[in-house]
Design a binder for these strands. Structure first.
Lengths: 223, 223
DNA sequence: TAATGTTTCGAACGAACGTTCGACCAAATC
DNA sequence: GATTTGGTCGAACGTTCGTTCGAAACATTA
């Protein structure tokens, strides 16, 4: 019974997608454990038992949402990256692709970012695999960037995961009517990652003793 | 019955803390909705009904964990910041303080980062208040930094929330035996935020047409 | 020792959970 | 017209959930 509800007269495969859309919204609102199959039934207008014609279990619903979202993102990224060689531009394309999809499918992305541990067994392995692949693409981009620019020997794992952190954290604060959209946001985050917030020439000032005496001089992070 | 279990012979207020520690661990492992009071009872060794002598409801357990953690972090931060005037050093202290507590209390921090929406009513308002206070401190630091260094007019909300994203995302990937500890991590993230990953003088290359033609020239983000 | 207050817990409450089953119905095939 | 097929759903299954309650056990004071 959600909004205009024309779940009938849909081809079978489209009805599964229709169910997954409402499921993603429900999971995004209440979390995977907090949302019940009955919630999904209510929001999609499909009866409780009717859902099990399309889906084997609650876990499978989450799995289908996650795997479909990741596959789409990776495919789009590879498509956008094709033919582009300049590393910093490749990085910008990655950020842009991620955030564009993020803001276009906020429910699915929230489910991706938030329900990392919920899957088990084969479902879990399957999602982990494509996630690792996605991560690998970004690490490659970063390595090329560093090789070209002779940047600091920053641990690539930390750099890349920090960048993912910036981006994925968005689901906790972004308000569409208040905050910038994908273009502005991805420009800002690319700049922040490539240049830093403060890219003045003079080095950031030396560290002094902190109040609790626990913050030491800034040091380059070793690999 | 977890590990060495001396929950008896504890003063009443200490036993509450003892329960909250085990509850935080349980919430961190299974999520707030996924964890049951029975799980907390099992892991703490306190009987199911016995828990309700110390606590009014499941929500209150989550509330007590969150409010205590935030209060401690803010108090430590204000303490560390006292007497330090240089904005970039203040920022480093903030990052260091956040990550130090993060890695020392990973369960509590995971609960903080992950269970943002679970609370309701007064509990929710109370936590939101101190969270806003913490956020405000960081925005002030950033504004001072920008004023001093004449950095780009980067939206402070985006800059600060991105920094929080970098840091809070850690709970999804950090492995204590594999990844750097708080000092190295906070240095890396402070550098990344202040300098950017690539702080070479020559500007990051101009943007060309992207594969899908949707990535435009980098632009400064307006306030 | 009696009386009072603090702390503990087994047993049970009603509600909600994920899942299953068999009956039903409409459209397609014979 | 009879039969099969694809799709739907009400009702119920056994289990687990958060919470309550009254009785014990223990410690403290009178």
């Amino acid at each position: 019974m959600s909004q205009t509800d024309n779940s009938d007269q849909l081809a079978s495969s489209q009805k599964l997608e229709y169910i997954l859309r409402h499921a993603a919204q429900t999971f995004a609102e209440k979390g995977y454990e907090g949302a019940s199959i009955r919630d999904i039934s209510r929001s999609s207008g499909v009866s409780l038992s009717g859902l099990y014609y399309y889906v084997k279990s609650k876990q499978e619903i989450l799995y289908l949402i996650q795997i479909h979202t990741f596959r789409t993102i990776v495919a789009r990224l590879q498509d956008s990256l094709r033919g582009v060689r300049d590393p910093s531009q490749r990085l910008r394309i990655f950020v842009r692709n991620h955030l564009e999809y993020f803001l276009q499918h906020p429910m699915e992305m929230k489910v991706l970012a938030h329900e990392d541990d919920a899957l088990e067994g084969v479902y879990r392995r399957d999602v982990a695999e494509i996630k690792r692949k996605y991560y690998g693409i970004v690490v490659e981009i970063f390595e090329a960037l560093r090789a070209e620019r002779r940047g600091p020997a920053l641990n690539p794992r930390i750099a890349v995961l920090s960048l993912f952190g910036m981006m994925n954290w968005i689901h906790t604060w972004h308000q569409p009517h208040r905050d910038p959209q994908a273009e502005e946001l991805s420009n800002a985050m690319s700049e922040m990652f490539l240049h830093g917030v403060m890219s003045n020439r003079r080095p950031v000032s030396r560290q002094l003793r902190s109040g609790r005496g626990s913050v030491n001089a800034a040091a380059r992070v070793a690999v």
